[in-house]
């Protein structure tokens, strides 16, 4: 993985299949290519495999067959160090999953110090800077339990960014939030997109998809059915199941 890859494809998933131990076929021949700097939003009904696909992209779920290449590195090739690869793929969860025994700053610094072996002083400065960037410069030393949901999710984003990832994965980052806090998290994500970050976002926030996404993927029943620009998706859909899904949302 030392040879520098400069191609424009950040993520290439080919014919990916995932069958859970209980026999549930959650991904059926899913293929998708995501370019460097692209913001892709995945939509689809509950149970359609959106989370499974996202989690396959950093191997939180092992796929049964197919191929996933991140920034030129084949995830399942022998000799690929998955921990090294994951450092470059940040992930933000619906339930935040902050480390409750660490302060806000401690959450952000932990991986840079323990994994990337950065100088603790430097890691601390970086953490403070990142937290200011997500608007939490005044909460450095409090524990996650003392924060609102929206603040916690912004810490989680800062924590993922601290490893300087090339891609950020978001799995319904605003679904667990009270409505008045959704905006602050989406704003952080928008500014991240404007900075050119490659992002894959599972969300029900159609406004975000319309406004920020370069492309929208529609999944249903484990299949990737539509991949198109937001304009085409939301105005002139031709796919009957996508139409059905969108009509239920409105």
């Amino acid at each position: 993985m030392t040879e520098a890859y400069t191609g424009k494809d950040m993520i290439v998933a080919t014919q990916v299949n995932k069958i859970y131990a209980n026999g549930c076929h959650a991904l059926k021949n899913v293929s998708a290519t995501i370019s460097r700097g692209e913001v892709v939003v995945i939509i689809g009904p509950s149970g359609s495999g959106k989370s499974t696909f996202l989690r396959a992209l950093n191997q939180l779920e092992q796929i049964n067959n197919g191929q996933i290449i991140i920034d030129g590195i084949n995830m399942y090739a022998p000799g690929t160090n998955i921990n090294k690869l994951r450092e470059r793929v940040g992930m933000v969860f619906q339930s935040f999953n902050l480390f409750p025994h660490k302060t806000v700053k401690g959450n952000v610094m932990l991986a840079p110090i323990k994994v990337a072996k950065r100088e603790p002083k430097k890691a601390e400065q970086d953490a403070e800077q990142l937290l200011r960037r997500v608007g939490l410069g005044d909460k450095l030393d409090v524990y996650p339990a003392q924060l609102s949901g929206g603040q916690q999710q912004r810490v989680a984003i800062a924590r993922a960014l601290a490893m300087n990832p090339d891609v950020m994965l978001f799995d319904e980052p605003t679904s667990a939030l009270d409505p008045e806090m959704v905006g602050e998290v989406l704003d952080v994500m928008k500014s991240l997109a404007n900075d050119g970050m490659t992002m894959v976002v599972v969300t029900h926030e159609m406004g975000f998809a319309r406004e920020v996404a370069d492309r929208v993927l529609f999944m249903e029943d484990g299949e990737l059915l539509v991949s198109d620009t937001p304009d085409n998706i939301f105005s002139s859909t031709k796919h009957p199941r996508l139409e059905q899904f969108l009509s239920k949302l409105l």
């Binding site: 921990n83 992930m91 994994v115 490893m163």
Partner: peptide, 9 residues
């Protein structure tokens, strides 16, 4: 999952 997604072994 959060720890592993940050690259921790």
């Amino acid at each position: 999952e959060a720890a592993r997604s940050l690259g921790m072994s």
